[in-house]
């Protein structure tokens, strides 16, 4: 156990140093996540018509929370994994007595830390520009937000890592993820809160993993009640499903892996 903690600490430290080297690049990626702010504009204007039952300020807070959630749950493991398989560098990782996934997980977690200063600056900038939207969430809401964001990141990482396993068989694993991303873009609450979706569609979506990756954490930060007895089982079920799939694909994939180029 102690050994694991030490390994993880070392990995996080190393990857954090590595990420700091690429800070300018990371800040640009963070800036490229402005999509929620664009939609915020349209929805604020639309809310003024009073058709949607939400005040403009409420939309502003929602999309701000979406931005934060999205920044904290960004995942790109499929591109990294695809490269290690195609270039054969996976062979070196396999030789080390450390689970391969730990490497990717550390790089993702430490990148979050490197991104933090930019997120804080943008938060300040946003509230200076739109002070009416400023609010201090209740500590309990912050706690539920943090729990839900962690779960959202875990689920998204697990799903993308499972899809990455396809890289053992095809060179275009990342394009499979692009389809998943399209669904994520339109169904997770990025383009609008699920409250304005048609009732039937919303109820259906709550059974899919998508809303739990953005909508639920964002609503929790705004102070909405979290239906834990629905949220936790659905996340757990999808988590189990993808974890099982991942184990199967991983063992089969390794047998198929030829270490090309290494």
């Amino acid at each position: 156990m102690k050994r694991w903690i030490r390994t993880l600490r070392t990995f996080l430290g190393v990857y954090y140093a590595y990420m700091l080297e690429y800070r300018s690049e990371i800040y640009l990626w963070a800036l490229a996540g402005v999509f929620p702010f664009i939609l915020m504009g349209v929805w604020i204007r639309a809310a003024e018509s009073g058709h949607f039952g939400w005040e403009p300020v409420r939309f502003a807070r929602y999309f701000f929370a979406v931005y934060l959630t999205r920044q904290l749950t960004v995942v790109w493991v499929i591109y990294e994994f695809e490269e290690t398989v195609l270039k054969g560098t996976l062979s070196f990782y396999l030789l080390q007595p450390v689970p391969v996934v730990l490497r990717f997980l550390s790089s993702h977690l430490s990148e979050r830390l490197a991104r933090l200063p930019f997120m804080l600056a943008l938060t300040l900038f946003f509230f200076l520009l739109y002070p009416r939207a400023f609010w201090i969430p209740d500590p309990r809401h912050i706690l539920s937000f943090l729990i839900l964001v962690t779960l959202a990141f875990g689920l998204r990482f697990l799903i993308q890592y499972t899809l990455s396993m396809l890289a053992f068989w095809t060179e275009r694993a990342a394009s499979v993820d692009e389809f998943f991303f399209l669904a994520y873009l339109f169904l997770s609450g990025m383009i609008a809160p699920l409250d304005v979706f048609p009732e039937g569609l919303r109820r259906f979506l709550m059974w899919t993993p998508f809303p739990y990756m953005l909508y639920t954490p964002a609503r929790a930060l705004m102070g909405g009640t979290v239906p834990w007895n629905q949220v936790l089982p659905v996340i757990a079920l999808w988590g189990l499903f993808f974890w099982g799939l991942y184990r199967i694909l991983w063992t089969r994939g390794l047998r198929h892996y030829s270490g090309m180029g290494a």
């Binding site: 300018s24 690049e25 640009l28 990626w29 800036l31 490229a32 996540g33 402005v34």
Partner: peptide
């Protein structure tokens, strides 16, 4: 800053 065009695109 090779990814700056992604910022433009977004």
């Amino acid at each position: 800053i090779y990814n700056v065009t992604y910022v433009l695109q977004s």
